[in-house]
Simulated assay, not measured.
Amino acid sequence: MTSLRALIFGCLLLAGTTSAIGETVYKCTGANGAVTYQDAPCPRAHKQQSIHLVDRQPAPTPAEPPAPAPAAADVATAPRAATAPAAPLPVLYQCQRATDGKTYLSRNGDPQPYQAPFGVLGAVQTPLASVYGPGGGGGASAPELNRGKVTSGLVANNYVWVQDVCRALGPEETCEALQDEYDENEHKLKQAFKSEQAPFEKREAELQAQLRNCGG
């Protein structure tokens, strides 16, 4: 059947027909036995045979492939909305006292200046025992009463303005400081009476929330 259909198409093309191929092709056999194929009925003097052909349907357009699903790695590395911690680490400072050089922790990095006795600052090379001891000087201790006096005997009673120097702690130092404060608070909580424990319990909860951000 396939070879016959190919033969029919070949004969029509050779005949130079410009008509569209229909569903019916006519096989015409002349008196001399010559056979022709055409899409119009045969002449009366020819023997005619009708051949019904099935039109070829156009090939369906291939559907577009679905978009590939995102890889598991892409899903895992997708950025997530940043969420602020419930209790972020506080900003702590390590401060050094101007009077004796000792350090302390503070939440204020810019402490207020204060007045300190001139003799405790080390500016005068006189032993403090002799400055503050018997015969070391007298006079009033109030700064406003000693303003402008420069006698060595009043060195211990003269005051000057000083200010502690502070620096901000890094995250690791902050966590260490919070842990020390937590341990100290726990000790006070255990030593306190039942009626005195509420403030320590509140501070305990605050420190626990902050320490969760230390990753320890």
Rank of each mutant, 00 (worst) to 15 (best):
L7E: 11
C214E: 10
A73M: 12
K102D: 03
T18F: 00
H187K: 14
R97V: 02
L211Q: 09
P65F: 01
Q49A: 09
A129W: 07
A72L: 14
R212Q: 14
L145N: 12
S50E: 15
A73T: 14
L145C: 06
L189G: 02
T36S: 10
M1H: 07
Q208D: 13
G216T: 15
G109L: 05
D180Y: 04
Y93E: 05
Q49D: 10
S152I: 12
G137W: 00
L121M: 12
S152C: 07
C95L: 04
I51D: 02
A76G: 02
G109T: 10
P90V: 07
P117S: 06
Q112C: 02
P41E: 13
A76Y: 06
I51Q: 02
N146G: 09
S195R: 15
N157F: 03
A82W: 03
T36H: 04
L154N: 12
I21H: 02
L169D: 00
K194P: 04
A34P: 01
L92W: 05
K190Q: 11
V150Q: 07
H52M: 09
G135V: 11
G170V: 02
R203G: 02
A209Y: 02
A86M: 08
G170F: 02
T126E: 09
A71H: 07
R44D: 15
P68I: 05
A76W: 05
C28I: 11
Q94V: 14
Q197I: 13
G136I: 09
V165G: 00
G153I: 11
A6I: 10
Q94E: 15
G139S: 01
T36A: 08
F9P: 00
C214N: 08
G101F: 03
S19Y: 01
Q48Y: 04
T174H: 01
P41D: 07
A59M: 13
A76R: 10
T126Q: 08
V155K: 00
A98K: 03
G148F: 06
P41R: 10
F200T: 03
G10N: 10
A142I: 08
Q57H: 10
Y93D: 03
L207R: 05
F193H: 12
K188W: 15
G122K: 03
E181H: 06
G109V: 09
Q48N: 03
T18L: 11
K102M: 07
A129E: 13
V165C: 00
R80I: 12
A140C: 12
Y159G: 08
P88E: 00
D55A: 12
L89G: 01
Q94M: 13
R203P: 00
E181W: 03
P70D: 06
L53I: 12
A98P: 03
L128K: 13
Q96D: 07
P134D: 08
Q125K: 15
P60E: 04
N108L: 08
P70Y: 01
T24F: 05
E23I: 02
R203I: 05
N146A: 13
H52F: 11
A59Y: 03
P171Q: 04
K194E: 13
V25G: 01
D183K: 12
Q94F: 00
A67R: 07
A20Q: 05
E196Q: 15
S141T: 15
G135S: 06
G10T: 14
P66D: 08
G135M: 02
S195M: 11
G30W: 04
H52T: 14
D183Q: 11
G148D: 06
C166I: 06
Q115M: 10
V25E: 02
G138A: 09
P85I: 08
D100Q: 01
Q179R: 13
R212C: 03
A34C: 04
N32M: 13
L178T: 05
